[in-house]
Measured scan of single mutants.
Amino acid sequence: EDDHHMEFCRVCKDGGELLCCDTCPSSYHIHCLNPPLPEIPNGEWLCPRCTCP
């Protein structure tokens, strides 16, 4: 699979289990988001950068 997502968290710059945005290459740990997510959501997810007006 050709995955163009970042291999590190945009916030802390560390790797591991990352949540990938469905519209851009950004990846995040769920605990690095503000507010943090309790678990990885099902379905499409947009990062804070893509949901800002």
Rank of each mutant, 00 (worst) to 15 (best):
E1S: 03
E1T: 06
D2N: 14
H4T: 12
H4D: 15
H4P: 05
H4M: 14
H5P: 09
M6G: 11
M6P: 02
M6T: 13
E7H: 06
E7P: 04
F8W: 11
F8I: 12
F8Y: 10
F8V: 12
F8P: 04
C9R: 03
C9T: 01
C9V: 00
R10A: 07
V11G: 08
V11D: 09
V11L: 06
V11I: 10
V11P: 01
C12S: 00
C12P: 00
K13H: 05
K13G: 12
K13N: 07
K13D: 06
K13R: 10
D14S: 13
D14Y: 04
D14E: 15
D14F: 05
G15M: 09
G16E: 13
G16Q: 03
G16I: 01
G16T: 04
G16D: 06
E17A: 05
E17T: 13
L18V: 09
L18F: 03
L19E: 02
L19P: 04
L19N: 09
C20P: 14
C21R: 01
C21L: 00
C21W: 00
D22T: 14
D22N: 10
T23V: 10
C24N: 00
C24P: 01
C24L: 01
C24E: 00
P25E: 05
P25I: 08
P25A: 09
P25H: 12
S26C: 11
S26E: 13
S26D: 09
S27F: 07
S27A: 14
S27E: 04
S27Y: 13
Y28D: 04
Y28C: 02
Y28G: 03
H29F: 00
H29Y: 01
H29V: 00
H29Q: 01
I30L: 12
H31P: 05
C32R: 01
C32W: 00
L33G: 03
L33V: 10
L33F: 05
N34Y: 06
P35N: 05
P35T: 07
P35K: 07
P36N: 05
P36C: 03
P36M: 06
L37R: 06
P38D: 11
P38N: 14
P38F: 08
E39N: 13
I40T: 12
I40W: 11
P41G: 08
N42I: 09
N42H: 09
N42T: 14
N42Y: 07
G43N: 10
G43C: 08
G43P: 05
G43R: 11
G43I: 08
G43L: 07
E44M: 10
E44F: 08
E44P: 14
E44R: 12
W45G: 04
W45A: 03
W45T: 04
W45Q: 03
W45K: 03
W45I: 03
W45S: 04
L46M: 08
C47H: 05
C47A: 01
P48F: 02
P48I: 00
P48M: 05
R49K: 13
R49S: 09
R49N: 13
R49F: 10
R49H: 13
C50Y: 00
C50D: 02
T51V: 11
T51S: 13
T51A: 12
C52W: 11
C52P: 02
C52M: 15
